[in-house]
Nucleic acid binder design. Structure first.
Length: 126
DNA sequence: AGGCTGACATCGC
DNA sequence: CGCGATGCCAGCC
């Protein structure tokens, strides 16, 4: 039995009025669902959306997320918990600052206790 | 219309 | 153990 995409699960969490959303928009929605003080990875989001090999797309989506408000791109990092995308923020420290405000410590562009802060959509949205 | 690029992840040599 | 190549999908040139 082929891996069922979690798109349907996502839809159930979304506010009414999102019948069909593109992979791109799905990433936005998941990102917005990340609780404050928690983080997740590009791969985790991609996996949740049923395309584990499309982690790159998630990153690309974050790029577009810049133009959109209310999308906590700073809560999304690579699978090592490293702030690989901090250079894409207004300032190199922006991402770190935002995370620290949420009680997430960052040392050398690396999230402290990444595993504890990790928020897996595949689990949390089940 | 076709090819390059990208804030990743994984496998191979 | 480290670097290189590949997959994936959408946007941009």
């Amino acid at each position: 039995m082929p891996p069922k995409k979690n798109v349907e699960k996502l839809k159930s969490v979304l506010p009414s009025g999102a019948p069909e959303i593109s992979f791109f928009e799905q990433v936005f929605e998941v990102a917005k669902l990340i609780p404050k003080g928690r983080v997740t990875s590009y791969g985790a989001i991609a996996l949740f959306l049923g395309a584990k090999s499309s982690a790159r797309m998630v990153g690309w989506a974050m790029n577009a997320a810049h133009t959109m408000p209310q999308i906590p791109a700073h809560r999304v990092v690579n699978r090592n918990g490293m702030l690989s995308g901090k250079m894409h923020f207004a300032t190199p420290t922006q991402m770190e600052e935002l995370l620290k405000k949420e009680k997430i410590n960052v040392i050398n562009d690396q999230i402290v206790d990444f595993e504890k802060k990790f928020w897996d959509p595949s689990i949390e949205l089940s």
